[in-house]
Design a protein around this nucleic acid. Structure first.
Lengths: 274, 274
DNA sequence: CAAATAGTGTCTCTAAGACAATATCAC
DNA sequence: GTGATATTGTCTTAGAGACACTATTTG
């Protein structure tokens, strides 16, 4: 008759085969591009961090940043650690996108991955992160359904263009499952992971859950609206956007200036008061 | 200079320490209890499947069913396999609740778990699953915030009552994170997992995502309403419920009978037409 | 007929979408 | 003044919640 202590000391974890577990990071940022016209506001685009693989497998392909789960940390801590290692930035929030565990998804062996969306603000990232590292680059993202019902994921950085095609398997409990028809030079099953992450991001952006994290502390309502429109690839009327967001922001005394048009009041995210 | 094939044959997965990965199942069912009054409809309650642990650790405590991820299967397949092993029923749908990976959550060692909600219909389960197995039981569930702001999770089966207390850590991206203040005789961190699962279930039940799976193919609108009210612990006016659900159901020619009151038309879930 | 549930009609209020109008700055 | 964005007002419509009323069955 054995007590719990005896049981545990005899328990051998090595009796079972175990997978390696990784956290993969889908790091999004919204970048603004000067338009040339001093009057015009800058346009914004959604961008995604990819790493060029230096070694096998998928050598030379682009992949999501990520890394192995270490003993003593949670999968969320692992994700945060990987983002910080890659960008020197600790994001305000990360969102789990789910587990990817298809056998054969990684030719190195049995490796399953929990994917996390992280949202970075351009002001933080460009301060801390030089663009000299040729193996890590921010790609412009475009993702939408085409006429045939498939989804096209287009990623571009300078002359480098990656174009993946996916089909929708099912949508259930707010999560959409995709199958890869063409991975478009993306490593592993990362095209699938990115598509799933984008769908989740858009779902949450509907009710403004995450859009503040893309901008610095103080922002104009038009900037905030641009963020939502860029993520969701929609456009809404300013009057209606302002009405919907009004409860979630606090105004400051400051204004933009020197913009060649009427200055805009700066706002901050409203603190929740219990 | 090595090619990919050479690289992979030299790659040794055993260089890194790896966790064991499990899928834990939060299996919900809605049970109806006869009221004694021949006129009155039966009341319904939400119930949850728990297993009494026969071995260490947590011997004698109640735990969620679950098991280790096997090579060659996805984590979703693992979850479905475990449910079927435990209940002989293959559920219509499962929903991931997330990863639980706190170090120390399992005294046997480094074991992380992906939790899945599964929804079973009473008609399927009672057919296939005898209640003779004393180590597996359906517990009535009650879960709500008390005056102090903590959450109480009460589980009862006959004279067996488990009562856990949790505090809300944060709510982000639709997921609520809990901390265990009192595990109430539940094994491991399962009180936390159940609380998280219930919150997810209620979130999805808001827009009827999962409520059909609790009932047989044909049902009355009142039954459907009871399901939603039981899950979410709310009550809505029949007229309004009917209006909201009307687009999601198709009527049949059949009616209930012998109920001691006006018979109700049976409905089916509407098939989606693309 | 009484008890109980099934089912319909409609009023009010709020939120979303569309659109028109006004305000303000840099040049 | 012109070009551009910022900001406000309001009309219409869709949906949620509340409530009153009618219909139908069994004992």
């Amino acid at each position: 008759m054995s007590d719990e202590k005896t049981f545990l000391s005899n328990y051998n974890m090595n009796d079972y085969e175990r997978p390696s577990v990784t956290a993969d990071i889908i790091a999004f940022m919204i970048r603004s591009q000067e338009s040339g016209n001093y009057r015009r506001n800058s346009k914004t685009s959604l961008s995604l961090l990819l790493i060029k693989r230096g070694g096998h497998p998928f050598k030379g392909c682009w992949a999501l940043p990520g890394g192995f789960l270490n003993p003593g940390e949670t999968i969320e801590q692992c994700a945060l650690r990987e983002i910080e290692e890659e960008t020197s930035v600790k994001p305000a929030s990360i969102m789990s996108v789910g587990m990817f565990s298809d056998p054969g998804r990684d030719p190195r062996g049995w490796i399953i991955s929990n994917a996390f969306v992280s949202i970075l603000s351009e002001s933080t990232v460009t301060q801390q992160y030089g663009d000299d590292a040729a193996d890590a680059q921010w790609f412009d993202v475009s993702f939408d359904k085409d006429k045939s019902g498939d989804y096209r994921l287009d990623l571009s950085y300078g002359d480098t263009k990656l174009s993946a095609v996916l089909s929708e398997e099912k949508t259930e409990f707010g999560r959409t499952y995709f199958n890869i028809k063409d991975s478009g030079q993306l490593a592993f099953d990362h095209a699938k992971i990115i598509a799933t992450a984008l769908t989740s991001l858009r779902n949450e952006a509907k009710d403004f859950e995450n859009i503040f994290d893309f901008l610095p502390e103080k922002f104009t309502l038009t900037q905030l609206q641009n963020v939502q429109e860029t993520i969701m690839n929609i456009s809404v009327l300013p009057a209606n956007f302002r009405r919907k967001i009004s409860g979630l922001v606090t105004e400051t005394d400051e204004y933009t200036k020197g913009a060649g048009h009427r200055p805009a009041k700066l706002y901050m995210r409203k603190k929740l008061t219990d």
